[in-house]
């Protein structure tokens, strides 16, 4: 019997993780999410489920990077060239995918490399796209990102920050769009990632297993029901799924209209100064997250409640800026800054 993806709305608990994922698919410019926590806490289930929740999008037919025909600023070389020559780009409907990057991935597979087959057959150089190409406009899921080779993490986060993958290797020189929602997971007990890399993640959440026995039982029940009869299980959650899908779409449409008051901006600025965060990514992510939260709630103005909630997602991993520093978020400072 065919089994489908576990419905997002059927995941018990883990509200912060779910919220962080939802916010990122509404507003991919938030910069992804890092999920810290032990094994078996529905991390990868949630990531696959969120992709399944999203409605189809338009993509240029035959394009290796699934360019968005309505987004001229981020077309690949090929699509941009065709548009320039006045060619209409035929499009089709595709679904957002979860592209996985295994820990053993080598750099050439990540960024792309020389197409060996083509070179041997035709004596010509051709670029063979890698995982970053597949990830364009999709979700890139890196399980145990802290175990990934450092140089792979470097190129990964570089591409994530730029939205572009630039390749200069093995005889090929190529550049293509690589805009994706980066979701990384890690178990902090197995080694950390560098604070500078942490800062590149927009949001972070810490997940733990449910402790409430009743909740644990519910997790098991649902899992068994899902495995026994997926179709029936999916039916139970269909309306909830559709509702959430619609809410995400509504939020996406509302997002550009959401405003922030000057008072709110200076509140965030003061908070960042008080916490002494590195650079400006914290403030920027904080305000963007608040705006996205407002959009999700259907409001056209972000407020201090949104900031408070956003702080939980955007700040904790930025508190530990240097190696070896204890990184606790001072909530009294946050509250004090938000009181004014």
């Amino acid at each position: 019997m065919r089994t489908g993806v576990y419905p997002f709305t059927a995941i018990v608990g883990q509200e912060e993780m779910k919220q962080a994922l939802i916010l990122n698919v509404i507003n991919p410019s938030l910069g992804g999410v890092l999920i810290k926590g032990e094994k078996g806490t529905a991390k990868s289930t949630a990531v696959r489920a969120i992709a399944d929740l999203l409605p189809a999008m338009r993509a240029v037919q035959g394009c290796r990077f699934r360019c968005d025909p309505e987004d001229p600023a981020h077309l690949c070389e090929d699509c941009a060239g065709r548009t320039k020559q006045g060619e209409a780009l035929p499009d089709l409907s595709v679904r957002m995918k979860v592209v996985e990057l295994p820990v053993s991935a080598t750099e050439d597979r990540v960024v792309g490399t020389l197409d060996i087959e083509h070179a041997i057959k035709f004596g010509e150089k051709k670029f063979e796209p890698g995982i970053l190409a597949q990830a364009n406009r999709n979700i890139l899921y890196v399980d145990e990102i802290n175990l990934l080779d450092d140089h792979v993490v470097d190129v990964l986060l570089d591409a994530a920050a730029m939205g572009v993958n630039t390749v200069e290797r093995e005889g090929v020189s190529y550049s293509h769009p690589a805009r994706f929602v980066l979701v990384g997971t890690m178990n902090p007990e197995e080694g950390d990632i560098r604070p500078q890399l942490l800062d590149r993640f927009g949001l972070s959440v810490t997940v733990t297993g449910e402790h409430e026995p009743a909740q644990r039982v519910e997790v098991i029940k649902r899992r068994m029901a899902y495995e026994q009869d997926w179709a029936a299980f999916a039916d139970t959650y269909r309306s909830g799924q559709e509702e959430l899908g619609q809410a995400i779409l509504r939020a996406r449409r509302l997002l550009p209209q959401v405003g922030v008051s000057d008072a709110l901006l200076s509140m965030v600025a003061k908070l960042a100064i008080q916490l002494g965060v590195d650079g400006h990514r914290a403030d920027i992510t904080l305000i963007k997250t608040a705006i996205t939260l407002a959009a999700l709630a259907g409001r056209e103005q972000a407020g201090s409640a949104d900031i408070r909630q956003a702080a939980r997602l955007a700040l904790p991993h930025r508190m530990r800026r240097r190696p070896f520093e204890e990184g606790a978020l001072d909530w009294t400072a946050v509250e004090a800054a938000l009181q004014d």
Binding site: D262, L265, S266, A269, V277, D278, H280, I284
Partner: peptide, 15 residues
């Protein structure tokens, strides 16, 4: 990093 709140707010506004 900018340490002036107004400048930081302006950065956010522009971004």
């Amino acid at each position: 990093r900018e340490t002036d709140a107004e400048a930081r707010a302006e950065i956010m506004r522009r971004v």
